[in-house]
């Protein structure tokens, strides 16, 4: 089994719902973003860029690419960063020493460090918490906890707390344009395999040799102009 995600750039409308829902469901502390959406080359978000005299605009959502050949895992001295049986790259918060070597190794700049104590958001009841409410352990590894320890690294887990219980990542559920498709890439009957079947795809930063498991289906807008 190999979990993967396809992102259809023709469908993405750049609304950033995925970034926000990810932050919410995973209780990401302030200043931490596992998922971000940007428009390449645009001076401001959501503006166009001129290429060959024509204005163009494309949105690229980017989070952990769950690399098959993950440099972050390779450099992690404690094994806090590891790949599980589904091919998902995870961080065990209880083993991370906060050396940040993985941050220097990840070419996608998706790893986030807890530079300070997480300061929760106070709600009307004075105790508002957001996100999945309990610790989630996988084979003993603490891969999700609503209140993060200070000084450890975190990143997208493909929502391990949901996918391990048969669900799908929050960004896929939340995307209003259905631009994100998740599933087992090794199963030809899975939704992702069916969606990608016969279609062209690309990966980001191919030259790094990281073999990402997040596939981008190129935009066809503007073709044949």
């Amino acid at each position: 089994m190999r979990y993967a995600m396809a992102i259809d750039l023709d469908r993405c409308i750049g609304c950033r719902t995925c970034a926000v829902i990810c932050k919410d469901h995973n209780a990401e502390p302030r200043g931490i973003w596992w998922n971000r959406v940007f428009s390449p080359g645009a001076p401001e978000y959501g503006t166009s860029v001129i290429v060959d005299g024509a204005p163009r605009m494309e949105f690229v959502p980017i989070s952990c690419q769950h690399c098959e050949n993950a440099p972050c895992q390779q450099v992690c001295p404690t094994g806090a960063t590891y790949t599980d049986d589904t091919g998902t790259v995870l961080v065990d918060y209880e083993k991370c020493i906060g050396c940040r070597y993985c941050i220097t190794a990840c070419p996608y700049e998706v790893r986030q460090f807890n530079w300070s104590k997480p300061d929760g958001v106070e709600g009307v009841d004075g105790e508002y918490r957001w996100g999945y409410p309990e610790d989630y352990r996988q084979d003993g590894h603490l891969v999700y906890t609503p209140v993060r320890p200070e000084g450890v690294v975190e990143k997208c887990t493909f929502c391990a707390q949901y996918t391990n219980q048969g669900g799908i990542p929050a960004c896929c559920t939340g995307c209003p344009a259905n631009a994100r498709i998740f599933g087992d890439i090794e199963d030809p009957e899975s939704e992702i395999s069916q969606y990608m079947s016969g279609r062209e795809w690309l990966v980001l930063g191919e030259s790094f040799g990281t073999k990402p498991k997040v596939y981008y289906l190129p935009s066809t807008r503007g073709e044949g102009e």
Partner: peptide, 16 residues
């Protein structure tokens, strides 16, 4: 850009 020959641009990252 994904569907046209274009320069490559850096994407902003989350500073924390």
């Amino acid at each position: 850009l994904s569907n046209v020959a274009s320069p490559s641009w850096p994407l902003p990252a989350s500073t924390g």
